[in-house]
Design a protein around this nucleic acid. Structure first.
Length: 551
RNA sequence: GGCCCUGUCGUCUAGAGGCCUAGGACACGGCCCUUUCAAGGCCGCGACACGGGUUCGAAUCCCGUCAGGGUCACCA
């Protein structure tokens, strides 16, 4: 394997498609992407799908992964020949065979149960379990093979001290000879293990720099041992600290599922509904539902989750955002997310925080990556998102808005034109999430007779204080039709005149109007909303409100 | 438990022996602005885990304690 020339930087992101992309994975991808892009023309960012676990990998997860990466804008350079490990079995087989030929690897016949017993015994004796080659007699091998006993192939890891320099930690990490053991490189199902496939693929893809999670630090020794046996060059390694929840717990993909399960159990208890009722309402198979309910290791898939949430009255905001997909659905901007994620563990130094992708690319260096774990504080991410929305001209925000709507098919804003989207964005200037813009302006996209009046809003704004709000609406119902020039400036002028005349604060007038046209107490600025709605709809809604909601 | 890594405001971090009575951002508290929700402006609260060294001098170097994390798979 020829070594890459010294100045090239080839990085890779190698997720296993067992679910949606996690923010931790997104950060790993980002750092690898930044490292490659920082090198300019000499840099390449490659993508590889690690689907050697046949039982857990799915095609759908792969598609979702690619979609998330695209949404983030972390484009990979091997789009034409994306590497799927599951399709390279013959390559691994040949190399493993050669290792066996050279006596550097061998078949082992213990069953998982037997190994388990050995480990337990070691634990009882308070000694470290280390698997080393057991010399089997020719007869034993013959017998095992004759029985058709399944086998794995283990790599005979040379017993010695291993060390490598970790670029993130900035120091040498050492493994003593007594910790060395022979590890599996080919599973009983014939697939290579992760350890084997990464080493081969990273070498064949000429990867020069590997940035990955800290959980891989110790694995690195296995990988360098394999590289030495196979004559591969050793890439540069850096292990990233972990991202955790604010409370210090691990940020697991299952956090949302857990929360939904807890809420469901509470719901069942409070409403005395039977599990089968709830399952039916959410159109989930009862047996599947009950299994999930009682078994924390089971998970519902995304459509099932949203159906169930709807049934038990849970909303998206009740759930923690863990997956990149969650952030997209809730209306975060990819650049804001990425900027925030980058700062979880990396700093360009000084007071620098807000950066464009281009700036981050210029400033990025592995030396700037921190060594300690970081907690994921959504409040700060929200602030980043708000600032991004504030700083970017509305027309440039439209593609992001569309990307949001793409994963929120139920929003009435699907019907909005680009120009209307721009208008909404401008009206809601100062919004934190695109979801807020969406939810606050949905009333503008439903039919006049489909507005639902919030009883609390009606009570508080219209009926209270001797139905002052009702009076205001009735009087406005006489004033507003006279406006021929239906623009927000004009409407404001007329309404302001009305206020002055009646000695009323604007709030006393704006709120009843807001309830009448939107059904609730929160909307974009009132005059712009009226402008957007148009004269006919405004008058129709005031009429309907007076007629149906108040009495 | 063994091995490995880490430890600056509530959170993310700046800091590479004197520039530090430790800077920024978010959060939080107060005030202002305001037609709702936001946004915005100003002010404030707030940290070098602890104990020993080394040094004229330590957040920065060394040791120990404590705390947190990772890992001990035919999962990646």
């Amino acid at each position: 394997m020829p070594a890459a020339s010294a100045d090239t930087v080839v990085t890779r992101f190698a997720p296993s498609p067992t679910g949606y992309l996690h923010v931790g994975g997104a950060r790993t991808a980002l750092f690898s992407w930044l490292l490659a892009r920082h090198a300019g023309g000499a840099g390449k960012f490659l993508l590889r799908i690690e689907d050697t676990d046949l039982a857990r990998s799915t095609e759908q997860a792969t598609l979702q992964l690619l979609d998330d990466l695209r949404w983030l804008g972390l484009h990979w350079d091997n789009a034409a020949d994306l590497v799927y490990q599951s399709r390279r079995k013959h390559v691994y087989d040949a190399i493993i065979e050669s290792l066996v030929q050279r006596n550097l690897a061998y078949r082992a016949y213990e069953t998982p149960e037997e190994l388990d017993l050995l480990r337990k015994a070691a634990e009882r004796e308070k000694r470290q379990f280390v698997y080393r080659r057991r010399d089997l007699s020719a007869e034993q091998v013959k017998q095992f093979e004759g029985e058709g006993r399944p086998h794995v192939v283990r790599f005979a890891m040379p017993v010695k001290e291993y060390r490598f320099h970790d670029e993130v930690l900035g120091k040498e990490i050492v493994l003593g000879p007594d910790e060395v053991q022979d590890f599996v490189i080919k599973k009983a199902d014939g697939m290579p293990t992760y350890h084997f496939a990464v080493v081969v693929d990273d070498a064949e893809m000429r990867v020069t720099h590997i940035l990955r999670g800290q959980e891989h630090t110790k694995n690195t020794f296995l990988h360098i041992a394999l590289q030495e046996a196979l004559g591969y060059p050793r890439p540069t390694y850096g292990h990233l600290p972990i991202i955790m929840n604010l409370d210090g717990s691990k940020m697991g993909k299952r956090d949302r599922d857990k929360k939904i399960r807890a809420a469901t159990q509470l719901h069942l208890k409070n409403t005395r509904q039977s599990p089968s009722d709830v399952a039916a309402a959410a159109s989930v198979a009862v047996s599947h539902f009950e299994e999930w309910l009682n078994n924390a290791s089971k998970q519902l898939d995304l459509p099932e989750q949203s159906a169930l949430m709807h049934v038990i009255g849970m909303t998206e905001s009740d759930l923690p955002e863990i997956l990149v997909h969650d952030f997209r659905r809730n209306g975060y901007f990819p650049d804001a997310l990425l900027n925030f994620l980058a700062l979880l563990g990396w700093s360009p130094g000084g007071d620098r925080e807000r950066m464009t992708m281009t700036e981050m690319t210029e400033l990025f260096s592995v030396a700037g990556i921190g060594k300690s774990n970081a907690k994921f504080d959504r409040a700060k991410l929200l602030a980043f998102n708000t600032q991004h929305g504030e700083a970017t001209p509305a027309p440039q925000l439209v593609p992001a808005f569309r990307a949001y709507l793409e994963v929120n098919p139920d929003s009435p804003l699907q019907r909005a034109s680009d120009d209307q989207l721009v208008k909404l964005l401008e009206m809601k200037k100062g919004f934190r999430l695109l979801r807020e813009v969406d939810e606050a302006s949905r009333f503008l996209f439903v039919a006049d007779d489909q507005i639902n009046y919030d009883p609390d809003a009606v009570e508080k704004v219209l009926r209270k204080n001797d139905r002052q709000g009702v009076t205001v609406l009735q009087e406005l119902g006489d004033v507003l039709p006279n406006i021929t020039d239906w623009r927000h400036e004009t409407i404001e002028k007329i309404v302001q005149q009305y206020c002055d005349q009646k000695q009323l604060g604007l709030g006393k007038v704006a709120q009843p109007l807001r309830v009448a046209i939107s059904g609730g107490t929160v909307s974009p600025p009132i005059f712009q909303s009226l402008d957007f709605l148009g004269r006919e709809s405004t008058l129709a809604r005031i009429d309907r409100c007076l007629g149906t909601a108040v009495y």
